[in-house]
Design a protein around this nucleic acid. Structure first.
Lengths: 187, 187
DNA sequence: TTCCATTAACAACACTTGTTATTTTACCGT
DNA sequence: ACGGTAAAATAACAAGTGTTGTTAATGGAA
């Protein structure tokens, strides 16, 4: 009947996502994706209406990727927010391009190829990561866990952003101590 | 003797810097600067070897601009680091494009049009802003002011970065309270 | 007035981008 | 084996980038 499909939508998305991880969102162009996927630009526009649609798909996968990253991250922290925070900071260090896309790109801006969700939305995810930690803080005797989350998350976000620009070089061990100390003092 | 110069290096730099403030570093292209300066691209390449040289000049002016911004910022804070921190956060909110260029762009990266200085270098400046605050902390009885600076600056940087993406919406008054509270508890 | 060095403008080059029209290729039912 | 059809490749368009010859304008000196 017709020619068999050799370039699937999965291959395109996989390629584009991997490029985002390794080279950054800005480098996900039609020609570069095609070159990496070993095809022309045509199959891209067959499965996606335009590049924006592909970028949205990459953004969606980045969200899933972060949530998987956190769910697989070891839980060595002893205080609420410490595990989520350590995973977040490690993610910024190890997946800097994805971190930039998810938590640092402005919705209104020039590199804004995509409609961003809020930091809280991505962080909380489908599993309610934040809500769970806030609940734990409440059960551990914290009087205003919501306020504490706001404060400690400012701290955590600061550490993560610094690690991106090379202005933060504390070890995971030191980070853990910092977060647990923060929790104790601010509780 | 010669044709009178109508487009000066100052006009080019002023235009490019103003574009950075208003539209972001990424939009400082030869043609756009020329259009805004009301000339062709030629005068740019007469006074600057290439665009990179202009970008470096814009970056240098951004550093001066930040330092002037801080020196003119009102000193209402009562604790060490609070004035510097409040100015930093206000700068991120009011001059988001400059903040991005100075404190958020990666040296190694795709948007890296310029050789970045470290956050500390820019912050401390020629006047030793950080050193002065650390000294004040020491005199106010802080045992390890260097360590305290590290911690409080992670917090301050976090707030600044959040305000950039719209994930931070505390007032100056609340920010001030937060920073002073942080200092007291962590001292 | 005539000259000429300096400055600005024009236009083009070689490259990139997203996107699309056209052509070629491969498959499958007949 | 043959058509029809869908996929992939090719090539092109229009707009953007930094950059650079070449040409035109200018204004003081001879």
């Amino acid at each position: 009947m017709a020619r068999k499909e050799s370039i699937t939508i999965q291959m395109i998305l996989d390629t584009a996502f991997e490029m985002t991880r390794e080279e950054g969102f800005i480098n996900v162009t039609a020609r570069k994706v095609a070159a990496k996927a070993g095809c022309s630009t045509q199959p891209i526009f067959r499965v996606y209406k335009n590049m924006e649609e592909l970028w949205e798909a990459v953004y969606g996968r980045a969200i899933s990727y972060f949530q998987d990253y956190y769910s697989l991250y070891p839980r060595t922290g002893q205080t609420p927010f410490s595990n989520l925070g350590m995973a977040y900071i490690a993610f910024a260090r190890e997946e800097s391009h994805l971190f930039e896309l998810l938590f640092l790109s402005q919705s209104t801006g020039d590199g804004a190829h995509v409609n961003r969700k809020s930091m809280y939305e991505v962080l909380n995810g489908e599993d309610g990561n934040v809500v769970r930690e806030v609940t734990a803080a409440k059960e551990s005797g914290c009087t205003d866990p919501g306020d504490l989350f706001t404060k400690i998350w400012i701290f955590i976000h600061g550490a993560a952003c610094m690690s991106l620009t090379g202005d933060y070089d504390l070890s995971d061990q030191e980070t853990k101590a910092l977060l647990e100390d923060f929790y104790i003092k601010a509780r």
